[in-house]
Design a protein around this nucleic acid. Structure first.
Lengths: 161, 161
DNA sequence: TATTGTTATACTCTATAACTATA
DNA sequence: TATAGTTATAGAGTATAACAATA
């Protein structure tokens, strides 16, 4: 590299090191911002939910089954965005842990209906309490009104009519 | 199963099949809503950005390098939430494609500074235009004011002071 | 001794194809 | 023939440990 270019390069590197990070375009994208916000909440989720040995997707399944007893795996699969093969494996584990019960659907023996066991219901109630608390902490910088507004705006994006 | 229980079960399954899905608790969680909104935008991103052969993380890197020429891998790694080992591999690919240039930092030869090549800059400009368009479509149900509000609320969650 | 970046590797998550049993 | 669920497997994404070069 010629000396003149070299000098310019050093100055540019120095300049770059001193500048705060610019990310105007990325910060204008809803998708990027959703991901960033999600990624700040997840570690707290993992930390607080470790006591129940529940991952985010597993918690979603339990919460959905508590609110919708006897739904089929098909509907559950669509609701939690977990493909049937992966859901089957997750349900195997939850069933082995005695949290979930699979029953043949008497109205259509191809499908299976799902309910929480008593232990599953209890664990779900505890973990819903914990998620409520952890969420409140993770979004403590928002007023109740802002938080409600945020939920409403996000749901406009993904709730189907 | 006794006949009486069996009859109750069939009724419960029928009832469940007719009910709309209840997901009150999940919909009250910011983290869950962020993820759901993100997951509705990503497929459109993948579809529109396939022409550039850019994944979300790769696009973030290009956009950040365009706005912050000559920053180090260390800072970039922190900014895009990609661990140094994984960033190294991603940069190998981007460098092989002639989009990015790595240079030893003359001020500290442990680190490397990064800039976009001319081709990288051009691809970044095109893809930023595309992301802008795709985002507008994915969030077309929001008014401009709502969209700005949403970005502001999300950033309150993850922007560090 | 600490830091930047790399290599190798493993683990989790997600996606796909082929199979079964029912309809 | 089509559908619900399963099995097996592969791929993408992410995380960790150990190393080389430099400070």
């Amino acid at each position: 590299m010629p000396i003149r270019k070299q000098k310019e390069f050093i100055e540019a590197v120095q300049e770059a090191a001193e500048q705060p990070l610019k990310q105007d375009h990325l910060l204008s994208l809803v998708g990027y911002n959703c991901r960033r916000a999600y990624l700040t909440i997840v570690p707290l989720f993992d930390e607080r939910m470790a006591q129940y040995n529940l991952k985010p997707a597993e918690f979603s399944v339990l919460s959905l089954l508590k609110a919708n007893p006897n739904i089929t795996q098909k509907r559950l699969s669509a609701a939690v965005n977990v493909s049937p093969p992966n859901l089957a494996i997750m349900l195997d584990k939850l069933e082995q842990r005695g949290l979930v019960l699979r029953q043949r659907n008497p109205l259509d023996k191809r499908s299976q209906t799902l309910i929480l066991t008593e232990a599953g219901t209890e664990l779900c109630m505890q973990s819903e309490r914990t998620t409520g608390e952890l969420e409140a902490e993770a979004t403590a910088m928002l007023t109740d009104q802002e938080r409600a507004q945020l939920l409403g705006l996000l749901q406009k994006i993904f709730v189907r009519e």
